[in-house]
Simulated scan of single mutants.
Amino acid sequence: MTNMQKGLAEFIGTFWLVFGGCGSAVLAAGVPDVGIGYLGVSLAFGLTVVTMAYAIGHISGCHLNPAVTVGLWAGGRFDARDIPLYVVAQVLGAVVAAFLLFYIASGTPGYDLATNGLAANGFGEGSPGGYDLWSGLLIEILLTAFFLWIIMGSTDGRAPAGFAPIAIGLALTLIHLISIPVTNTSVNPARSTGPALVVGGLALHQLWLFWVAPVIGGLAGGWLYRTVGADRFPKPNIEGE
Rank of each mutant, 00 (worst) to 15 (best):
P84C: 04
I56A: 01
L43V: 15
A97I: 10
G61D: 09
V91Q: 12
G40T: 12
I36C: 15
Y111M: 14
G30L: 15
L64T: 04
L39K: 02
G37K: 11
V91N: 13
F45A: 09
A44C: 08
I59T: 13
G46E: 02
V95H: 02
G75I: 06
T48C: 14
R77P: 09
L27H: 10
S60H: 02
A67M: 10
P84L: 08
G76E: 10
R77K: 15
R81C: 03
I83W: 09
I36S: 14
G93Y: 08
F99M: 11
A44F: 06
A29I: 06
L100I: 15
F99L: 10
V87E: 03
V68C: 04
V50Y: 01
T69E: 13
Y86T: 00
D79P: 03
A29W: 05
G76R: 12
V70I: 15
L39D: 10
L100P: 06
L92V: 12
V91Y: 09
T51S: 15
V96S: 01
G23L: 04
P66R: 08
T108C: 13
V91M: 15
F102Q: 05
L43D: 03
S24K: 01
G107S: 13
G57V: 05
V49L: 14
G46K: 08
C62K: 03
V41M: 01
A98W: 02
V91P: 03
A55K: 06
A53K: 00
A97N: 01
W73C: 00
V95C: 02
D112V: 14
V91T: 12
L47V: 11
D79E: 14
A44K: 01
V26R: 03
R81E: 12
S106T: 08
V31D: 09
D79L: 11
T51L: 04
F45R: 03
V41R: 00
F78Q: 13
C62N: 12
L100Y: 07
L100F: 12
H63F: 10
F102T: 02
A53M: 06
G46Q: 11
V87T: 11
L101S: 01
I83T: 10
V41I: 09
A55T: 15
G46W: 00
A55Y: 04
A105P: 07
Q90V: 00
P32A: 15
L43E: 05
I59Y: 10
G57H: 03
V49S: 02
V96D: 05
A55L: 14
W73Y: 12
A98I: 04
G107Y: 07
L85Y: 10
L101G: 01
L72Q: 09
A94R: 00
L92I: 12
